[in-house]
Simulated assay, not measured.
Amino acid sequence: MHARTPSRRPRTAALLTALLTCAALTACAGPAPSAAAPPAAASAPAPSAPTPTTTHGQPPARDAKDAPDATAAPTQVTIPSLKISSPLMRLGLNADGTVEVPPAEKGMTAGWYTGGAVPGRPGPAVLIGHNDTRFGRAVFHDLKDIRKGAEVVVRDGAGTPLRFTVTSKETVSKKAFPTERVYGATKGSTLRLVTCDGAFDAEGHPVDNLIVYAELS
């Protein structure tokens, strides 16, 4: 999943937009086996997975002092109402500055973007997962069915559960990814779940992103 976002400030906003866009698009691989391969993730490249054409934007860099310790980093996400439960892999940035997404062969595993907030701390924690991949349905396939008020539980390395309540969701064009709403600073601890959605374009790429917003209960 990837996405582009218009820049508000000369370089930072432009980069922010370009990065976030890519993440949103790349997180969902369309069914077309002939589609081009997406940018390789540093940890595990996704061979011949379709490359989404999106505007996910470039998230702001986080200061090294804010890096989470081993126990604070999230390790699992659960959505009881949708019967979704997945370990969380760490996602960083690709060499081209786009946000990594889980490789297609790990479609049933969601990922936490380490450049965002740590769940439970002030700011938006961003979790990215596939809707479908060339291997079939993926971890966030049913995310479109989530309802306002639903609970999302994120556990840290110590097994401590953090409970978030869904406040809203939206489907947006990958060409107009809402970078600021997803990655922009928040006073409280918030959560964003991002996957692909909508119809497929001529190359087999989903044209939209589904974004779920939640707040710490």
Rank of each mutant, 00 (worst) to 15 (best):
T167L: 03
Y183N: 11
T167Y: 03
P103C: 05
S85M: 01
P52C: 09
A32N: 15
S217F: 09
F177N: 07
V139D: 10
T109M: 07
T51R: 15
P31K: 06
L193K: 02
P10H: 11
A27H: 07
P80V: 10
P47V: 02
A24I: 02
A67W: 15
T171R: 09
P52F: 08
L193I: 08
F164L: 01
G97V: 02
L82V: 05
V139G: 00
K187Y: 08
G129Q: 08
A73M: 03
S48C: 04
T109N: 05
P50M: 05
G111H: 06
P74M: 03
C196D: 04
G204E: 13
V101W: 13
T98G: 14
G159E: 00
A61Y: 09
I79N: 07
V99F: 03
T54F: 11
P50C: 08
W112N: 00
L127I: 15
D96Q: 07
G57P: 03
T133M: 01
D66V: 01
H2C: 13
R192A: 01
S7E: 06
K174C: 11
A14H: 05
P161G: 01
G149P: 07
T55G: 15
M1P: 01
P178M: 14
T54A: 13
L20R: 05
V101R: 04
P10K: 14
G129R: 11
H141P: 00
V194T: 11
P31R: 06
R181Q: 13
G116S: 14
L88Y: 00
R134I: 08
E203N: 12
G136I: 15
E100F: 05
H2W: 12
A185L: 05
R134S: 04
F200C: 10
R8N: 12
S81I: 06
V166S: 05
T54V: 14
V99C: 07
P52A: 12
C22S: 14
P60L: 06
T195I: 03
T171Y: 06
A185D: 08
S48P: 06
T54L: 15
D145Q: 13
G107Y: 02
G129T: 09
K65H: 15
V152G: 02
E100R: 09
A95Q: 09
L88W: 04
A35Y: 04
P38C: 03
T51S: 12
M108P: 00
G30Y: 03
S7A: 12
A32P: 06
H141G: 00
A13Y: 03
A37N: 07
T12Y: 11
G116V: 06
D69M: 04
V101F: 10
A61P: 01
G57K: 02
L127K: 03
K65F: 14
